[in-house]
Design a protein around this nucleic acid. Sequence first.
DNA 1: CCTGAATTTAGCGTATAAGAAACTTAATTT
DNA 2: AAATTAAGTTTCTTATACGCTAAATTCAGG
Lengths: 224, 224
Amino acid sequence: MTDQKTGLGDFLRDIRVRNHWTLLEVSEMTGLAVSTLSKVENNQMSLTYDRLVQLAAGLGVDIVELFGTRPVESTPSLLGRRAISRQGEGRLIQTGNYDYLYLCTEISKKSMVPILAVLHARTIEEFGEFVHHDGQEYTYVVEGALELHTEHYEPAMLKAGDSVYFDASMGHAYLSVSESPARILCVCSTSEKELINSLVGADGEISNLKKKSKSRRKTSTIRK
Amino acid sequence: MTDQKTGLGDFLRDIRVRNHWTLLEVSEMTGLAVSTLSKVENNQMSLTYDRLVQLAAGLGVDIVELFGTRPVESTPSLLGRRAISRQGEGRLIQTGNYDYLYLCTEISKKSMVPILAVLHARTIEEFGEFVHHDGQEYTYVVEGALELHTEHYEPAMLKAGDSVYFDASMGHAYLSVSESPARILCVCSTSEKELINSLVGADGEISNLKKKSKSRRKTSTIRK
DNA sequence: CCTGAATTTAGCGTATAAGAAACTTAATTT
DNA sequence: AAATTAAGTTTCTTATACGCTAAATTCAGG
């Protein structure tokens, strides 16, 4: 294991001598002064954001390389893991439009996010802005009936047992049309983080959030 | 689809506002002064290497995020497409163990594959070899009760309303334990092709296939 | 040892980053 | 309405980045 050392300086000197470049050459490549480069290499000074970009561009390396951060990246594999959510269990997030019950949350690196939801909104006005997010969405109607509104299609009525698959970057909204609020099972092919972000409006306000439960985690039930 | 950010300031404000953090909170998280953060967000100043590292660490984001380099965006886009499967509709594939009803098959490039299934097998002997395939699998029990057998866990009993998420490369088998065969909604994060292949033995024979409906497409019902 | 050229480092001035505190705005409370 | 609280911005001061220039180091061939 080569000591993936802390500093920018070490990296810079490393790449420079590897390529048999002089400070002057690097200076010409990047537009940074020779003296600056020297000081950086000797860890006598840091660099600002702009210069970092400039340096990376000049050297023709990805900006990431400048930071010793090795990609611990992406083992999407769960490696034989399993998680069970019993009926009613999960992480509850409530908004004016939906009660969300995020399922199987003990597994963090899921490539799909399963959610049970109860739909409260009954009109598109009440619902507000369409929801958009990355990835795709599959929804199965567990109970009741709903109307699916999307940007590019006419509204569609879905009853218990029906299901729909669509591109979730297309704005969408579910409205209850049955007497009691419809219950759906929704599976999204994106990260939970992205999903929760999509609840946040452009202005930064959580749209229709019932309680401002600032990162408050609550494990609860929708229907025991 | 998240907004393409132009600079560091935009990114910082974006993530801060999305998480409902105040400048003070971010200051405490990162150790940077409130005034500094304010100026950065308003693009009135840049940041040095050290501060960038500090900022990223405090926010708990990868340093890469701070630079405009967007990840490759590997999700195959459906570009605003939508498909609905009514109750009972789908592409039926029957084996000795399951009746599979592949849903929303008009969309071909799905990143998830939703399937309604009826479980016939009641003993592990009857079931035969475990099923393995790529990706992850989420299953929600719609009706009845089942026993999920997997390679690395003790069998688990799941009743209507329960659900399970697991690494599908781990061998698995569902057995009905309720009086009438259990019905499940299963969503897999792999391609339909891969899935159907996993039904095929190493010799190329489809194991336990009831009818050799060689690429015969049949739109039918499981339970009208 | 020189001598000189190439390369790197150090000194210094200006520009800018960074933090503390004062100030502005907006929302609540008394 | 005044007072309080909270968020964010601006001001001011110190510290640091950064480039110019010069000094120091390394390294040829004599």
